[in-house]
Nucleic acid binder design. Structure first.
Lengths: 168, 168
DNA sequence: GAAGATTGTCAACCTCCTTGCCTAGTTTGT
DNA sequence: ACAAACTAGGCAAGGAGGTTGACAATCTTC
């Protein structure tokens, strides 16, 4: 009874981590597909990470890195890609000569709102298929679990995310 | 009411996709940490994907690619890394001169069982913190949702996974 | 002002995956 | 039987999303 490859495989398929992985992958692929279908052909899921952390009046690279939970270099590289897509613009900081302020363009605001709409639409469709109450409860349980296992990753206005937080 | 960056950020944080992403990331990092702490210092989460799809008597690269849902090249590269870690071994196929059969080493079987044990331990700990019933229900709801949105990704013995299935 | 921190970036590298191509085998059609 | 067609695997190059180290320019502190 030491090692039965089929039952090992079955056991893995029922693990919470595996279920989470499949759901994340499926939903993320669907998001990308739909946002691109809306005409944003260059869209990548990582874009929303940065775009959603920009303040209305712009945010510096370092602040973004702290909020998102990655290095300044990663933010700098990501910002360049998003800038090339025309969704943000860099400006010199008004008072600090070292800093760069990143700000939404009009297109940047529109793609972010579009992506959120698509996420909502996907959730609504899932709710239609799997049950309104079920999806609502799923979200509640996930939020509850995350409160236990990843309290630092939660969104708190005016608070910086702890280093090593979940990006994307 | 056009665009308030703080409320947009808050809206995104409550999306199902975001919750899934955080939970996946947190759990996956914990798995890696604990398996490495057990002495498997070279462990990477992708290893379990391939290891769990190996049959007892070995499996060819092409079959693995079909099961896992990626390209043969990706499997080939992953297999090399796992082989270098001493967890699998390649052998010529007995009858087909083109094929390569990949098989567990003893260490490969042990690390796979260890990783599954760690996953179970993490789930148990989460259940202790967030509630036994809650985590059980979370898994049930996820499995139910996946049955709707990703039926092809589910595990069916003696069935190959559809192309484009969720890897890892 | 000199010493020290902070900001952003360049360069190099890593992981995991992709696409394109290529050889060595196996199967099929005639 | 033998060429044509397919299949198995691997090489090479590269993309996407990070990492770490080093560095010049610019604050800030004493």
């Amino acid at each position: 009874m030491s090692f039965d490859s089929a039952s090992v495989r079955a056991r893995r398929e029922q693990m919470l981590l595996r279920l989470l992985f499949r759901a994340t992958h499926t939903m993320n692929a669907e998001l990308t597909r739909r946002v691109r279908a809306r005409g944003w052909t260059a869209f990548k899921p990582t874009f929303t990470t940065l775009l959603s952390h920009l303040d209305t009046d712009g945010t510096t690279i370092s602040t973004l890195a702290a909020r998102i939970g990655t290095s300044r270099q990663a933010v700098s590289q990501l910002a360049r890609a998003i800038e090339e897509a025309g969704l943000i613009e860099r400006m010199p900081h008004p008072t600090d000569g070292r800093s760069v302020v990143v700000r939404h363009t009009d297109a940047g605001r529109r793609i972010l709102l579009d992506a959120l709409d698509v996420m909502s639409a996907i959730e609504a469709e899932y709710a239609g298929r799997a049950g309104e109450a079920e999806v609502g409860e799923l979200k509640g349980l996930l939020a509850h679990l995350l409160g236990e296992i990843d309290p630092a990753g939660a969104f708190h206005p005016d608070e910086q995310r702890s280093p090593g937080a979940v990006p994307n």
